[in-house]
Simulated assay, not measured.
Amino acid sequence: MSTRSDVDRSPLFGVPRRLVSLIWLPIVLALLFLTPGQGVAPAWLWAGLVPAVGGWLLFALRRELSPPATVLTSVFLAGGGIVLLAGSDGWTTSAAFPMMAVFVAAMRLPYRAALLVDVPLIAVTTIVVGPYGSVWDVLLVVAALTAMVLFGFGRRDARRRAEEHEKALVADARAREEHARAEAIADRARVARDVHDVLAHSLSALAVQLQGARLMALRDGAAPDTVAQIERAQRLASDGITEARRAVRALREGPGPVDVAGELRELGRAHPGATVDVDEGLRLGAREGETVLRTAQEALSNARKHAPGAPVTVSLRQDGDGAELEVVDVAGAPPPPGDGAGSGLTGMAERAALVGAELETGPTPDGWRVRLLLPAHGRIAP
Score class of each variant (00 low, 15 high):
L32R: 02
P11F: 06
V258C: 07
V208A: 09
G48W: 07
E298A: 14
L203T: 02
E253S: 14
R351G: 01
P131G: 08
T313P: 01
A114N: 10
I185G: 02
T3W: 11
L264K: 03
M1G: 14
M216W: 01
V227N: 02
Q318M: 07
L22P: 06
V135C: 02
V170C: 02
A376I: 04
P337A: 15
G362F: 14
A299G: 10
G356L: 11
F97D: 04
A158W: 03
V198I: 06
L72F: 15
P335T: 05
P224L: 05
A30K: 01
A274L: 04
A333C: 05
E326D: 12
M348G: 07
L300G: 11
A78G: 15
L45H: 03
T125F: 03
L19D: 00
E64T: 10
G344T: 01
A144S: 09
E243C: 01
A349W: 00
A261W: 05
G342S: 14
P255T: 15
V119L: 15
Y132I: 09
L58R: 12
F13G: 00
A357C: 10
D137P: 00
A189W: 02
L109W: 06
V138I: 13
R245T: 05
L84R: 01
P16W: 05
S301W: 12
H271N: 08
R351F: 08
D366N: 11
V195H: 05
L85E: 13
G39H: 14
A182I: 04
L199H: 03
L373Q: 12
